[in-house]
Amino acid sequence: MRASRLALALAATALTALAAIPTVAGAQDGPAAASYKAPRNAWGQPDLQGVWTNATITPLERPAQFSDLVIPEAQARAMEQANASQNAEGLKPTDPNAKVTDLPVDCGRGFRGTDCGYNSFWTDPGTRVIRINGQARSSIIVDPPNGKLPAMTPEARQRLAQRFSRNNPRAFDGPESRSLGERCILSFGTSAGPPMLPLLYNNTYQIVQNRDEIAILVEMVHDVRIIRLNAKPLPASVKQWMGDSIGRWEGDTLVVETVNMRPEQGLRGASGGTLKVTERLTRVAPDQILYRFTVEDPATYVAPFTGEVAMNATKGPIYEYACHEGNYALEGILAGARALEKEGRTPTSDPVADLAGEGGL
Results as ranks from 00 to 15, higher is better:
Ser4Asp: 12
Ala25Gly: 03
Ile289Cys: 07
Val105Ile: 12
Gly108His: 13
Ala310Met: 01
Leu281His: 01
Arg178Phe: 04
Glu341Lys: 15
Thr190Met: 05
Pro195Met: 10
Ser67Phe: 12
Arg292Trp: 04
Glu182Asp: 09
Asp124Lys: 13
Ala339Met: 07
Ser179Arg: 06
Pro63Gly: 11
Pro31Leu: 03
Val255Asn: 05
Ala3Tyr: 15
Pro63Ile: 09
Ser179Pro: 00
Pro125Gly: 13
Leu10Asp: 11
Tyr118Arg: 11
Val295Thr: 03
Asp95Leu: 02
Thr94Lys: 14
Ala11His: 14
Arg40Phe: 04
Gly50Pro: 11
Ile318Trp: 03
Glu257Thr: 13
Arg109Ala: 15
Leu334Val: 05
Arg345His: 03
Ala98Tyr: 06
Asp47Thr: 02
Pro150Ala: 04
Ala64Arg: 13
Leu229Gln: 07
Met311Ala: 08
Thr114Phe: 11
Phe305Cys: 01
Ala285Trp: 03
Val255Lys: 01
Arg283Gly: 02
Phe172Asn: 02
Glu341Gln: 13
Leu200Asp: 12
Gly326Thr: 08
Val256Arg: 03
Glu219Ala: 11
Thr314Pro: 03
Ala17Gln: 12
Trp249His: 13
Gly272His: 07
Val218Tyr: 01
Asp29Phe: 08
Asp297Gln: 06
Thr282Val: 05
Thr127Tyr: 02
Glu257Gln: 08
Ala42Gln: 11
Asn133Asp: 12
Gly360Pro: 10
Ala88Asn: 12
Ser179Tyr: 06
Ile71Thr: 11
Ser35Glu: 15
Pro72Asp: 12
Val208Trp: 04
Glu257Asp: 08
Asn203Tyr: 07
Asn230Gln: 13
Val224Gln: 14
Asn312Gly: 03
Met196Ser: 15
Val24Tyr: 06
His222Asp: 10
Ala3Glu: 15
Ala84Arg: 09
Ala299Met: 07
Val224Asn: 10
Ala215Gln: 10
Asn230Glu: 11
Trp241Lys: 03
Pro195Phe: 06
Gln75Cys: 09
Arg228Asn: 13
Ala356Thr: 01
Tyr36Pro: 00
Asn83Gly: 06
Arg292Gly: 04
Ala20His: 00
Arg338Trp: 08
Val295Pro: 00
Met220Ser: 15
Leu267Thr: 04
Gly134Tyr: 09
Arg166Thr: 14
Lys342Met: 15
Ser179Gly: 00
Ala3Leu: 15
Arg128Ile: 02
Pro286Asn: 05
Ser187His: 09
Leu160His: 12
Ala20Gln: 01
Gln288Val: 04
Met242Gly: 09
Ser271Trp: 11
Val284Arg: 03
Pro22Met: 08
Ile226Tyr: 14
Thr153Cys: 03
Gly26Trp: 00
Ala12Tyr: 01
Ser85Thr: 14
Phe164His: 08
Ile57Met: 04
Leu186Cys: 11
